[in-house]
């Protein structure tokens, strides 16, 4: 195991046999050896939404890493940041491939943190329903407005909006819609089979 204060130059693969049982139960998709590009973007977005939802989410993510004994893959916050930087749309992006064990670890972190936020997610979506029924914008409700504001700020600060794929998100309305979609996606992740559902959805369109 790597010492906690060291920083490897690249994200290195972890042996499958060292995976915790929770992650070992997730099957490797056929014909895929590293995390696909869309999956890296999706996982980072979900983590970004969780950070926007809760100010302490960053610490909670590291706590979840310790609780699930994922330190083999994510020994410290620097490695965690490096793994997240494999998202190709970040301003500071790493061109190194993300191995499947690290992808599983990131998936587990998303699901576990989303589960702890289930009450908040349900509450916000319920209010959103009521606001839409009254034809009111989401910003009318202060906690939703705060979430969307934080999400927009995080997104604009960390993502490279000059990439052609992100031109759309220069507009506030498009970014708001993305933030609200992520709330629903996080709710689907937080369910009983959320881990399996998220894991398999990451490889939709990637397997032969």
């Amino acid at each position: 195991m790597e010492p906690a204060n060291s920083m490897p130059a690249t994200v290195e693969s972890t042996q499958t046999e060292r995976l915790p049982p929770l992650l070992a139960a997730l099957p490797d998709p056929p014909g895929v050896s590293v995390c696909p590009r869309r999956a890296r973007w999706q996982l980072d977005l979900l983590l970004l939404a969780l950070e926007s939802l809760d100010l302490n989410a960053s610490e909670l993510m590291l706590q979840v890493v310790r609780d699930l004994q994922l330190q083999v893959m994510i020994p410290n916050r620097v490695i965690f940041w490096q793994i997240r930087c494999t998202n190709p749309f970040r301003q500071v992006t790493q061109r190194t491939p993300l191995p499947l064990p690290e992808t599983k670890a990131l998936t587990a972190v998303v699901v576990q943190v989303a589960r702890r936020q289930t009450a908040t997610l349900r509450h916000l979506l319920l209010v959103l329903d009521q606001l839409q029924a009254q034809h009111l914008p989401p910003e009318t409700y202060a906690p939703l407005a705060e979430y969307l504001d934080r999400f927009r700020r995080h997104f604009r600060k960390r993502m490279n909006l000059q990439r052609s794929g992100l031109f759309l998100y220069k507009e506030t309305a498009a970014l708001n819609e993305l933030g609200l979609q992520l709330l629903v996606q996080l709710l689907f992740c937080a369910g009983t089979k959320g881990l399996e559902r998220l894991w398999f959805s990451l490889f939709d369109g990637e397997v032969h």
Binding site: P29, F188, G191, T192, K193, E196, R197, W199, F200, S201, L202, F203, D204, G205, E206, V207, H208
Partner: peptide, 23 residues
């Protein structure tokens, strides 16, 4: 609804068949 169906599947020890969509 999805959660209720998931709980049913977990309860009866038969997992729903997850698989990723082909390209």
């Amino acid at each position: 609804l999805v959660e209720a169906l998931d709980q049913f599947c977990s309860d009866s020890q038969t997992l729903p068949t997850f698989q990723s969509l082909p390209r």
